[in-house]
């Protein structure tokens, strides 16, 4: 037995089969954090922009969405939101 296996709680069979973590945990963790950081400004922008909108007026909402900067920010917000 090598000194490695003496210091581990994993059984030799488990080591031989190569089972262990799924090796995807760090990526999932980072993706959640990065999207969280991106959502902080996007969410604040979205909430306070929509709050200032006359939400029941189709014309006003449509006009708001026609601005390219609003459209880009909203697409970013939705994409990151659903990814998060």
């Amino acid at each position: 037995m090598s000194s490695d296996s003496a210091n581990t709680l994993r059984s030799p069979l488990k080591r031989a089969r190569g089972s262990g973590s799924a090796k995807e945990g760090v990526n999932t963790f980072l993706a959640e954090r990065v999207s969280a950081v991106a959502l902080v400004p996007l969410t604040l922008w979205f909430v306070f922009s929509v709050a200032r909108l006359p939400i029941l007026s189709y014309g006003a909402v449509r006009q708001w969405l026609q601005s390219p900067s609003v459209a880009v920010a909203l697409v970013l917000f939705l994409a990151v939101l659903f990814y998060h």
Binding site: A36, L39, V40, T43, L44, V47
Partner: peptide, 19 residues
């Protein structure tokens, strides 16, 4: 929905600090 969103946002920042 707005409160849930803003609470999740604020507490999410708290979680990021813990991270």
């Amino acid at each position: 929905w707005s409160w849930a969103l803003l609470y999740h946002l604020c507490n999410g920042i708290r979680h990021l600090c813990w991270d």
